[in-house]
C-alpha cells in the first residue's frame, strides 16, 4: 500500500504534513487508539471503494465460462487480451468507435468550453463594463440549472432544425460551462495582477494577445480544473445522447454500453462484452486524473501551497 504512495507519479511530499509533524510535539499526543481507529475506518472504506473495480478487472480477465464458475475476486485463466480482442472485433469494432466518439465529444468539447469560459471569466474579472454584475449573476444562475433539465428542450429545438441524431446535437450543448466562468473569474481576480496587464499594455501588446500570452499561463491551474470537470461531465453525460441519438455509430461509450446491457436478456453473449467494455471505458478517465492531478489539485486548493 505504501509502495503506491512512493511511486514518482504520486510522490511529492505534502508540505503541510511535514509542517504538522514538526508541530505535533507541542500539543497533546494523538493516542494510539485514535490512530488505529482512523486507519481502520479508512482501510475498510478503501475496500468498499476499490473492490467493485477490482471485481470488474478480474471479470475482464476471465472467459465467459469461468466467469460464473470461479472465484469472482480472484484470477482464473488470464484471458484479458483475448477478451479485448473479441470486444474490438465485435460488430466491426463498434466499441472502438464509441470510445473515439466519447474522446471527441469530451476532449474537444471540454477544450473549447474551457477556452470560452476562461475568456468570459477573465473579462468579468479584469474589465469594467455596464451589465457586468448582471451577466455574472445570470451565469451563476446557470450553474444551478441541471444539465438534464435542458436535455428535452434541446431535443425539441434541435429537431426543429433537423439536427437531432447528429454529432452536433451532443457536441454543441457541451461547449457551455457556467461553472467554468464562475471559477475562472474568481481565479483571474486573484491570480492575474492588474499591474501585469498594464505592463503588457505599455509594451504595446493588445488585450487579446495579453490574455493568450500572459494571463492564460497564470490561470493555468484553474483552466485544468475547468477542463477536467467539463471533460468528466461530458464523458458521463447520458440523458442528452440518450434523447438525441438513434444512430449507433454516433453513440458515446456510456450510451453504447447501456444499450448492450439492456439487451443482455435477449443476447446473453453481450454480458461479457459489457463487462470488458465497462473496464476499458473507465481507464481513460483514471489516466487523465492521474496525469493532471498536480494541476487540478492546485486549481482547487492552491491557497495552502505557497
Amino acid at each position: 500500500m505504501s509502495a503506491l504512495t512512493e511511486t514518482p507519479v504520486v510522490a511529492r511530499p505534502s508540505r503541510r504534513v511535514t509542517r504538522r509533524t514538526e508541530n505535533a510535539p507541542k500539543g497533546p499526543k494523538e493516542s494510539p487508539l485514535s490512530r488505529v481507529g482512523a486507519m481502520t475506518v479508512m482501510l475498510v472504506f478503501t475496500l468498499y471503494f476499490l473492490i467493485p473495480i477490482w471485481w470488474l478487472f478480474i471479470a475482464g480477465t476471465k472467459s465467459s465460462s469461468q466467469f460464473t464458475s470461479t472465484n469472482p475476486l480472484w484470477f482464473a485463466d488470464f484471458n484479458l487480451f483475448a477478451n479485448i480482442g473479441n470486444l474490438v472485433a465485435y460488430r466491426d469494432g463498434v466499441f472502438l468507435k464509441w470510445m473515439l466518439n466519447s474522446a471527441l465529444y469530451a476532449g474537444a468539447g471540454a477544450l473549447l468550453a474551457t477556452l470560452f469560459a476562461a475568456m468570459c471569466g477573465y473579462a468579468l474579472a479584469k474589465y469594467r463594463f455596464p451589465g457586468r454584475e448582471l451577466l455574472f449573476n445570470i451565469v451563476l444562475g446557470g450553474v444551478l440549472v441541471p444539465a438534464t433539465a435542458l436535455a428535452l428542450p434541446l431535443f425539441l429545438i434541435f429537431s426543429q432544425v433537423s439536427l437531432t441524431n447528429t454529432f452536433w446535437a451532443v457536441f454543441l450543448p457541451s461547449l457551455v460551462s457556467p461553472f467554468g466562468v464562475y471559477l475562472t473569474r474568481i481565479f483571474a481576480s486573484a491570480s492575474v495582477p492588474d499591474e501585469l496587464i498594464e505592463a503588457a499594455r505599455l509594451d504595446g501588446a493588445g488585450e487579446v494577445r495579453t490574455f493568450f500570452t500572459v494571463s492564460v499561463k497564470l490561470m493555468f491551474p484553474a483552466l485544468v480544473t475547468v477542463f477536467l470537470f467539463q471533460f468528466v461531465a461530458i464523458w458521463n453525460n447520458f440523458f442528452l445522447p440518450l434523447i438525441m441519438l438513434r444512430d449507433e455509430t454516433l453513440f458515446p461509450v456510456t450510451l453504447g454500453l447501456y444499450a448492450w446491457n439492456s439487451q443482455v436478456n435477449q443476447i446473453p453473449e453481450l454480458r461479457g462484452y459489457v463487462l470488458i467494455g465497462a473496464l476499458l471505458s473507465i481507464i481513460p478517465l483514471i489516466i487523465l486524473f492521474l496525469l493532471l492531478q498536480r494541476f487540478w489539485r492546485n486549481g482547487l486548493s492552491a491557497g495552502s501551497v505557497k
Binding site: 500500500m1 503506491l4 504538522r20 505535533a24 494523538e30 473495480i53 478517465l285
Partner: peptide, 25 residues
C-alpha cells in the same frame, strides 16, 4: 488530521470511483 499514514493513497483510492460514469457504475 495527523492520525493517518498513506494519505496520498487514500485520497486517490477514494476518488477513483468518480472516474466511473454513472451508467457504468
Amino acid at each position: 488530521s495527523p492520525l493517518l499514514r498513506g494519505k496520498r493513497f487514500f485520497r486517490l483510492a477514494f476518488f477513483v470511483p468518480y472516474a466511473v460514469p454513472g451508467v457504468i457504475a
